[in-house]
Amino acid sequence: MTELATTLEALAVHKQFCEDVLNMPGGEKIKICQQCGTCTGSCPTSYLMDWGPREIIAAFRAGMIDRVVKSNTIWLCTSCYSCTVRCPAGIKITDLMYELKRLAIKYDLAPKDGKAPAMTKYFIDSVHKHGRNHEVELMAKFMLTKDWGLPFKFAGTGLKLFTAGRLPLFAKNIRGRDELDKISAYLEAQEAKAQ
């Protein structure tokens, strides 16, 4: 894990990180968080988190970026949007979690052995390869690299799913799957141009 704020380069990353978060659509609202804790109270997984969403916002505003990206918090968000619809300041907290995940990946700060970052990556690989997510391929890849025990824990149900035809082995490829690569390449080029 990179120790930030130790070199000038890290300081620049730090600054860019803060700007990226505040520049996301609706991001500036983070400034008006009143620390009421409705988000943490509404979150179904906050009890598993190192820091709840309220504390993540506080840490971010205090410039403690290390704490924000090294916490397990951002990887435990299930995208249920309970916090987002309840936040009295209108902060799109689920979107903030996405942004923090994105930046953790971009600046290579995501936990290397994490299951959630791996799952995210495999999902996107599958979509770019086939145009659609091939669930079986995704699960197989995930099991092979991150959770050897899964097939055993899940064997009975897996077999039933398979015999019911709910686990097709072969992926369907869409005709326009090269378009997804082109879309990503275009946006990457635009971003490089802007910086």
Binding site: S79, R102, K121, I124, V127, N133, I174, G176, I183, S184
Partner: peptide, 17 residues
């Protein structure tokens, strides 16, 4: 010829994508 919507995973890599 629809493609995957991107679901929640895609938002976690690049929002504009």
């Amino acid at each position: 010829d629809w493609n995957c919507c991107g679901a929640t995973s895609y938002f976690s890599v690049r929002e504009l994508d």
